[in-house]
Structure formats: structure tokens, C-alpha cells
Design a protein around this nucleic acid. Sequence first.
DNA 1: TTAATTTTTTGACATAGGTCAAGGATATCC
DNA 2: GGATATCCTTGACCTATGTCAAAAAATTAA
Lengths: 233, 233
Amino acid sequence: MSEKKSDHLSQLRNMPLFLKLPDAALGMLEGILVVRSFHKGENIFTEGSASAGFYIVIKGRVKVFKLSAEGKEQILHIVGSRELLGAVSAFAGSPYPAHADAMEKTTAFFLPRKDFLALIQKEPTVVMNMMANLSMRLQHFTRMIEDLSLKEVPGRLAAYLLYLHERTGRGDIVEIDISKGQLASLLGTIPETLSRILRKMSEKGLLKVSGRRIRLLNRKALQYIVNGEKTGL
Amino acid sequence: MSEKKSDHLSQLRNMPLFLKLPDAALGMLEGILVVRSFHKGENIFTEGSASAGFYIVIKGRVKVFKLSAEGKEQILHIVGSRELLGAVSAFAGSPYPAHADAMEKTTAFFLPRKDFLALIQKEPTVVMNMMANLSMRLQHFTRMIEDLSLKEVPGRLAAYLLYLHERTGRGDIVEIDISKGQLASLLGTIPETLSRILRKMSEKGLLKVSGRRIRLLNRKALQYIVNGEKTGL
DNA sequence: TTAATTTTTTGACATAGGTCAAGGATATCC
DNA sequence: GGATATCCTTGACCTATGTCAAAAAATTAA
């Protein structure tokens, strides 16, 4: 799992978590961080297991998810490059509250909990940066709870597509960067339901699906759906 | 709204947020904090409005909630004595992400955003304490998402009752401290559904309801329901 | 206490979305 | 590049839970 890390270290000082960190501290980090790689589908940690430390993803993507008794999965979030994985547990000393699996070949720095704790004692800026990170996560979860309990699946899907369009859309095309099954799990539903809703939206002329490429033909109508307008989907 | 504060200041040094704070800083806080009171049902802040600062609840309870287009409410959490309200927004400088209403007559300290920012610059321990707070909130939201998307209403109710029993139960009695309508909103459902499920649980001999007092007659069975066992409710 | 208001319960009903099973389409791997 | 595994779609069906309306109960006010 462990491999050479020199290639990645240059990125360190640009990581949100280490912004404004003095060079001395960065140098210390270099000696501590361990590079770990995970192949596609590999489990990184499991819900309930003790936190040994946390990860900073360098390359690849990791899904953080919960499992129901029957095996249905709910993705909490997808962690990509330069993002933190398991930091809250490492900070609080609590067990990991969810599972984490690599969605593709993934490389990450691992920072042992005790070194992390020592670092934040010495460097308040790290805590500040981490607070900013947690704040964003909290906002994200707030919206997720709102969506799950107050919106129906078409609304959640429409919101996701419009969000994706805003961030990465070219013209009226969005490219979903995960499989439809995983998207279903992210939206709190199942593949069958997602598939049916996409078909109905196509029939209504709201969008056009070609594999993972979706053309948004009527963004205004999609926004109405997000807002809870009944459109007989 | 503003009133005398001397009575409450003694509590300051025991607040989780200000633990280990030097006396000098505490003294400064005394000059800055404003006491505000809200009557039952009064709105404290509204989703989307700019954060002017945050509150530390002294007495009373506040519900933080989202509203759907049709007016259905989802309670995110209930903030009680010594707890923080709106701290994330004050830190991040983002608008309040939800509504907050006093559930009963409530008194709170208000700390203006700029003073808060100055404080955390000077006092890293405050940031540390706040991180601990955010971590717990994040865990709470994580479980909420899990429950909403992977559990059915009986499971969420059973989990809540067992949680309440663990925290405050005397013998096999738990006292729900909010109205059933509010409990429904906290569980992500509506009063009618909650009422029906309580009746079914009573018929099955799992519990006995007398107003807000509930006697848990079969905690093991309730736990099975939390775990997703099908029990034909 | 009585009246007025709010909360809770119940019934009849509607429906979003989950389950199960099967076929078709894609992607992945030697 | 063909075989194999995985993913996606579709249909028939079922069930949990929401909607609407009204009665009953409980709380608050006068």
C-alpha cells in the first residue's frame, strides 16, 4: 500500500487544510505523512472501527456511505482530490461513523491521529482551516436532510442536475461523473426509481439521456420541480 | 429584547465553548455579550438571512428547522441550555441555513460576528471547543441522514424512544419533552403517521402511551425494529 | 368553569416509490 | 475482440406513508 511520496509533497502547501502553514510545520509533516494507495472498490475504513488517523486524498475518489440492514447504501458524500477523509473522527477520537470505499484507483496521504493532534496543538491555523471545512460539510448535510425529508426523488434529481450544470456544465450538457446506480444511492433512492424518473423527464422533454451524458432541455422546468411544483412526473 | 445580564454571566466559564478560557478573555466577553429574550413561538432568525452573530442559549429551547414549499417542517435539531445557535454561519460568514424559532420563553447571549471573529483570533482554545461542538453536530446529522434514507418511520421512532430512555428514562418510562406534532417533524414524518404507529406499537404490546408519558414495555422488540427487522407494524 | 383554540386521533383514500424478476445494454478483462 | 461480469431498464406488483376531512381530546384563555 505504501509508496514513494516525494512527487505529491509539493502539493501540500496548497491544500486547504495547510494554507498559511509555516514552512517549518510543512517540513515536519513531510516526515510524518504516509502515502497509501487503494485499488478500485477497496475498503478504506469501516463504520464503527476506531479512528487511527485521517486521509487527504491526492488522486482518485472515495465514497463515504452508510448501509441499511438489508444492504441498501446511502452515500453521504464523495471525497475527491485535496479533500479530507475521516478528519472528524481523528479529531474527536470517535469511531468512523460510516464506511469508506475507493471508487477508483486512489492515492492518499495518511496522517496518524497522534501526529495530527500534536500538529493542531502547535498550529492553530490548521484548526481554523479545518473549521472552515467542517462548516461546509455541515451545510451540505443540512441540505441533504432537507432534501431527503421535504423533497421527492424528482426534486432531488433535478437539484443535482442543475447543481452539476452550474459547476461543470458546458452549454446545456452535464456529464454525471458516477454510475447511475451510485447516483441513485447519493439521492437516497434505488436504480429502478432513478431510471423511471429519467425516462419520464425525457418523455416530458425536460432532458435527453445518452449514457452518462445528459442534455438539459428545459432548465426552468427542472427548477420548478426542485421548488416543489407538482408537474405530474 | 435586551435585559440585565449579570445573573447569567457566572455561567459563562462553564460553557463548553469557553472551557479553559483565560479570565482576561472572559472579562472581555462580559462587555460584549448581549442578553436577548424571545417569547414562545418567536422567530430568532430566518433561513437565508445574513448572519449577524450567534447565540448561546441560557434558558429555554429553540428549534432549528427547514420548511418545504408546502409548509411541511423538518426539525434539524433542538437547541437547549448552554448550546450554540447559529455558530457555523457566524464563523463562515454565510447566511443562516435554516429557520430558528423559540419553542418556549427563551433567553440567550448574543455574540456579534465581528467580536466572535476577534475572539477566535486571540483564543485558539475557543476554536478547539467549537470544533468539538461541530464534530458532534456532524455525527448527529450523519445519523439523521442514515435514518431518513435507510430506516422507516417505526425504526426512527423506536430509535428515538430508546435514545430518550437511555438519556432520561426512569425505569421503563420515558417522557417526550416536545409535542407529538413536533416529534413527528423531528422524525421526518407527519402527526397522523406518528399517531398510527404509536397505536400499532401499543396494540403489539411494545409500549403504552399516556399523553407525553410513554412506558416502554418491550425494549428488545423496539431495538429489533431499529435494526430493521420486519415486524409487521 | 366554560369557552376557545390547538393538538391528537381516526378513517377512507391516493400515490410515490420500493420489491422482485427478467431482458437488454455496457463496460471490463484476458 | 470476444467472453464475462456489471450496470441499466422495464413491467407487474405491493406497501409505507402522505392527503383530506372530521371527531375527540387536551390545553389555554377568559
